[in-house]
């Protein structure tokens, strides 16, 4: 299963980016292979519809779970429609590495 964590930077030390549509980077984590990959979000600068554009990408990548801080109504609708699980993390202090660690632990159980 693939999970995306919105990230402020391109490494595990980066904190979670609380904005979904206009997050700086994505960390795409594949539970099966245990591999994580960082990708730049090119929707950061669009004038309108950033959330929908980003949601579109999640569905295209066949992501089943997204971990972020906030989702706009339009992005939420689209992600719900394709049964993508939305996790809201209010604790912004966590790094992407810590979150991936948690995911690994859980899949190891």
């Amino acid at each position: 299963m693939k999970t995306v964590i919105t990230s402020k930077g391109d490494s595990f030390d980066s904190p979670l980016d609380p904005r979904f549509g206009r997050c700086a980077w994505f960390c795409l984590y594949d539970e099966q292979t245990g591999e994580a990959e960082f990708m730049k979000n090119d929707s950061v600068d669009v004038a309108g519809g950033a959330g929908t554009r980003t949601a579109e990408k999640m569905i295209e990548w066949n992501v089943k779970k997204v971990i972020s801080g906030d989702y706009g109504p339009k992005a939420k609708d689209l992600l719900d429609r394709f049964n993508v699980q939305l996790v809201i993390m209010k604790n912004e202090d966590k790094t992407v590495g810590e979150i991936v660690g948690k995911l690994k632990e859980r899949s190891g159980d």
């Binding site: 004038a47 309108g48 950033a50 949601a55 579109e56 295209e60 394709f82």
Partner: peptide, 20 residues
């Protein structure tokens, strides 16, 4: 230019957002 159309080919999804 206004990001008003969403198309996701792998899942055959397409929609227009009238607000944008």
């Amino acid at each position: 230019e206004f990001n008003a159309i969403t198309v996701i080919p792998p899942v055959k999804f397409a929609a227009v957002n009238p607000d944008l």
